[in-house]
Amino acid sequence: MAESLKFHFDVDGDNFTSAGAASVEVKRKLRQLGFPAEVIRRVSIAMYEGEINMVVHARGGVADVYVEPNCITIVLADQGPGIPDIDLAMQEGYSTAPDNIRALGFGAGMGLPNMKRYTDEMKIDTVLKKGTTVTMKVYI
């Protein structure tokens, strides 16, 4: 793969059932491109957690994935409430998700820590009441 590819997705914030569909699509495309299984898994899990976060906290958003031969970059942008305390949000087990989300199997306070765990770089840009952009990189 000589040049970079870009994939764009709209993440529907009103539909928890379809959350993760973009990550599934990215996983399929990366497989077609022949990336190593471990890389594909790290990228898709990190993006999946991010997608779930956008649906749970920010009524959806947009996801852009840039695929280059030596690096995959995932940019997740929403116009949600923002993150008041990033250090707190990064702690495993800390969650502001409502109980109905916990009943669906998420909201354990593992989303952001998992995203960091599976990527080589993660940057969070957030402004209260404006939105959050999470940029993650996985190097090949």
């Binding site: 899990i45 999946y48 957690e49 916990r102 199997g105 998420f106 909201g107 354990a108 593992m110 998992n114």
Partner: peptide, 8 residues
Amino acid sequence: DMMSDVLA
């Protein structure tokens, strides 16, 4: 029953 724990 917690999917985030599975994903960890």
